[in-house]
Design a protein around this nucleic acid. Structure first.
Lengths: 236, 236
DNA sequence: CGTCGGTTTGAGAGCCTTCAATTCTCGTGG
DNA sequence: CCACGAGAATTGAAGGCTCTCAAACCGACG
């Protein structure tokens, strides 16, 4: 139901109003801690933190979309992933951020100084246990996201991204709701490791084959979840 | 190509020798804890743990080489990574292993039941802090290993693997020492996401261009570290 | 109405895969 | 000691996929 320039309200975390939509709603100690912090708002295309800067804060996003990326020496941009409401950033970094985080859409986030987090962790085993849990989740989900793509063709990677976004929005293939692509074709290309043109051609091909439909470039309906899944999961 | 469903029963237990072969530099609490455990020995090509089995142990490897992998629905094998002396396995899994670990060469490992680790962690903040540190390292190194490969050509991926192995053996390009490839071309292919033939052709090309030399398929000398680095790091 | 950034489509070149055949390596048995 | 055989590694050829370069299209905005 979200429209183009919707305001960022707190209904993101109002679990009753989202129904079965978002499966990422967490209520662990870390989430509760972050939600008690001040909220920061970012316009679109703003840098939230920059690679090589001292990693002195962690974030929990409440609305919007964020891309994390860095550049190869040849100038190509690697998008490590996208962050959505309910996602954390900064938990896994060492002394310095190893990625740049930039808002792709208007975004709001809770932020907590890292020094404060460390202090709190040293006094709360529950918080530290939760941190371990979050790091494990991040590790597993990153493995699930990136590993298969190394072995998949371009259109399978696009299918995989669509499935990831659909699952996040609670879309199971039942018609009606559309997947909202907040990122550009360029962002998608730099995430999937293929060119912008190939991203476009993949969307076109998926449309031609009836797996998806779209009214505008950023709204995708999944018409055949079964075939899109088998494509994205790698069932040849 | 799919390996039989070997189970834990296949392990070779050998408690007699506690070899000092390990040259690991790390001496964190987790390392010290694991090194005090019983050592297990595996012959080559043995299953250490299997995907979907209950993840009831963690491992610290003391010698040998281990591959962690799983299969896509189409039968292709994804090698998530290789484990060497000093590396841990099993720290990041949830209820069940999400990968299969198999020895590529004869291997020895310290093993600790997970339940025991959890108990110890709940009593030692130092241990838990070390666990957080290890998970962060695993996350970072996995990002560094897999992300760039999505955007690199075949020969650059091969170069990257060689650099990773060279760094691990402390080879800085100074002549003399050779990188030892304990894994087969097939293992490398399934790790890099390219075909066996392309792996071979990449090695051949690197030899022709004088970046590397080799006496046998599993011994590689780095002749031009500067150019190999720029190739592997993505300097076009 | 014109500009600008983002998206889409087209054409040609190059890389990678698949299928196939050959060579290499090494352990085994004669 | 040597021949043999199985698995691994390597090389070759044809075809498909993806990239780059180029051009056309589209929508938002001043």
């Amino acid at each position: 139901m979200r429209v183009g320039h919707a305001r960022f309200d707190d209904r993101i975390f109002d679990e009753t109003s989202r129904g079965s939509a978002n499966s990422t709603i967490r209520t662990g100690p870390m989430t509760l801690l972050l939600r008690a912090q001040k909220m920061i708002r970012f316009a679109s295309k703003q840098i939230i933190f920059h690679e090589d800067d001292p990693a002195d804060a962690v974030f929990l996003f409440a609305s919007g979309t964020v891309g994390q990326y860095r550049f190869l020496p040849n100038g190509r941009r690697l998008v490590a992933g996208f962050l959505f409401p309910g996602d954390f950033a900064g938990l896994s970094f060492g002394e310095r951020y190893s990625l740049t985080a930039q808002s792709i859409a208007p975004t709001s986030a809770y932020s907590l100084p890292r020094a404060e987090l460390n202090l709190l962790c040293s006094h709360s085993t529950a918080l530290q246990t939760d941190l371990v849990c979050l790091l494990k989740q991040e590790l597993v989900s990153e493995r699930e996201a990136h590993l298969p793509m190394l072995h998949q063709a371009a259109h399978a990677r696009v299918a995989r991204l669509l499935l990831m976004l659909a699952r996040r929005e609670g879309i199971d293939g039942g018609n009606g709701e559309a997947v909202q692509l907040t990122m550009t074709r360029g962002d998608i290309a730099d995430y999937l490791g293929i060119s912008v043109e190939t991203v476009c051609r993949s969307f076109t091909k998926l449309k031609e084959e009836g797996l998806i439909a779209s009214s505008s470039p950023d709204r995708i309906w999944i018409k055949n979840m079964a075939r899109l899944s088998s494509l994205g999961e790698g069932q040849d």
